[in-house]
Design a protein around this nucleic acid. Structure first.
Length: 425
RNA sequence: GUGAGUGUAGUUCAAUUGGUUAGAGCACUGGAUUGUGGUUCCAGAUGUUGGGGGUUCAAGUCCCCUCACUCACCCCA
């Protein structure tokens, strides 16, 4: 009996696994470089939390959650996004106290029950960061800089940054009222779905892809014209800061995040090549000043972003991707052949491993060709032990890149030292 | 949830209007080369043509069902 993988999931073996591992390693280094520290929450989360935080009317909670009912009747979900669980955890443990600012990053699997497509899976990975307890506009900019830093780290150049402000508790209701009025007057020009949205969430009409709706939406009042004083000055400051750092962005009054907790600054990094098909959002984020209170915590203005790892990987230029997926070299492959050499080779392998040398050995054959051929794909150096070497108490160390080889005394410390010397070059 | 497309060896793909024993590259195994890999040469192994049913003298090819995958809509990372 053979079994197939679950729809919308994927396994990682071989090169794919190496690629994923090296990409996430690189992401961690970049995010840590901007002062964020690692955080992790459970995959299983309380269902109600997402309804509250993300919004009951959003597609994510409305139709995309994997729901699990415990034997006692409690309702859990496989988390569909990370900001809410992280915020829940922070509140629950009083992780942020007083005026302190915490910066966290994560790399986590998420689950959404959607039809799979290019750059879209049911079980997928997101990396992301959250800057907690700061309303400083420079935090918004810092996020965008990090976003650029990440794409730069992978040499992704075909992208654009779009920003918008969607206001706060004070000015958004006023704006949505205006919008509702405008769209109601033109409702005949809207698609069926948008006529429904009109009542539940008129902001989403702006985001509709129907060409008729787009036309109507293009004439709609814009949020940035309706911002309150505070939101307006904040947005001006964010833009000013981006300008100062010469960050290239465009204003897109149509950006509306699909999660209800966002306020003020929102932004997207959009892939502009053809790597992603129609799922072109590489990174999406913004400010969510009200989320903490919404989840029962203290007032904690915060901002963050998330990016899909599958989409990131798809966007990496092919030559860079190939380099990243071959970065799995071990230091030394121990090659043995002839009588009584395997034993010595095994014990040398273990000695080297204990001296922090990444070493590998093949027991299953004593053919030198097979071993060297395997070594050349995995290691930079081959440590060769034959009958002669056993007699001489030496080993041959061969550089698999330039074919040069050298005779060294059979002494684990000396061999380890030699290998480390080569490693540093 | 809706629509379209595709299923052939481990993998990428061939196979004339339906026509004999379904082929090739890469990968794999062995050898040329019993002490030297990534280049070369030679040889070898590999298939329920996704599964089931039907039409036909004859089906990888046509029809129906089913399963899987892919892409797009929707939405998002």
């Amino acid at each position: 009996m053979q079994f197939e993988r679950v729809k919308g999931t994927y396994d990682m073996l071989g090169k794919h696994a190496v690629l994923f591992k090296n990409v996430t390693d690189k992401l961690k280094i970049t995010m840590e470089g901007y002062g964020f520290s690692y955080a992790q929450t459970a995959v299983l989360q309380p269902m109600e939390m997402f309804k509250r935080a993300v919004g009951n009317e959003t597609d994510i909670v409305n139709k995309e959650m994997f729901e699990i009912k415990s034997k006692s009747g409690k309702e859990y979900v496989l988390k569909p996004e990370e900001t809410a669980p992280l915020m829940r955890s922070v509140i629950e443990s009083n992780f942020v106290q007083g005026l302190e600012v915490k910066k966290l990053y994560y790399i986590t699997p998420l689950f959404r029950h959607e039809r799979p497509q290019k750059g879209r899976f049911r079980e997928f990975y997101q990396y992301g960061v959250e800057t907690l307890n700061s309303s400083d506009f420079r935090r918004d900019c810092e996020l965008i800089m990090l976003g650029e830093g990440i794409l730069k780290a992978f040499e992704i150049k075909k992208y654009k940054i779009e920003i918008n402000s969607i206001g706060c508790r004070t000015c958004r209701p006023e704006y949505t009222a205006k919008l509702k009025k405008y769209f109601s007057e033109k409702s005949s020009g809207l698609c069926k779905q948008c006529r429904v949205r009109l009542d539940s969430n008129p902001l989403r009409v702006l985001d509709c892809k129907e060409s008729a709706c787009k036309i109507v939406a293009s004439g709609a009042p814009k949020m940035i014209d309706s911002l309150c004083e505070e939101c307006k000055t904040d947005f001006e400051r964010v833009k000013g800061c981006l300008d100062e750092f010469k960050i290239d962005y465009t204003l897109n009054p149509m950006i509306v995040r699909g999660l209800d907790y966002y306020t003020k600054t929102v932004f997207e990094f959009i892939e502009t090549g053809d790597a992603l098909g129609s799922q072109s959002t590489l990174i999406g984020g913004g400010r969510y000043d009200m989320l903490s209170k919404e989840l029962g915590g203290q007032d904690m203005p915060s901002c963050g972003f998330a990016g899909g790892i599958e989409r990131l990987i798809l966007s990496i230029p092919e030559n860079i991707r190939k380099t990243i997926e071959s970065e799995n070299v071990i230091d030394a492959f121990i090659v043995h052949f002839g009588k009584e050499t395997a034993k010595a080779a095994f014990s040398l392998t273990e000695s080297l491993r204990q001296r922090s040398i990444r070493a590998e050995i093949l027991f299953e054959t004593d053919k030198i060709k097979k071993q060297l051929s395997l070594a050349s794909g995995k290691a930079r150096l081959a440590v060769i032990i034959g009958e002669e070497e056993i007699k001489d108490k030496t080993v041959l160390i061969k550089n698999l890149a330039d074919q040069k080889q050298e005779k060294i005394e059979f002494n684990a410390d000396k061999i380890a030292e030699y290998i480390k010397g080569v490693k540093d070059v």
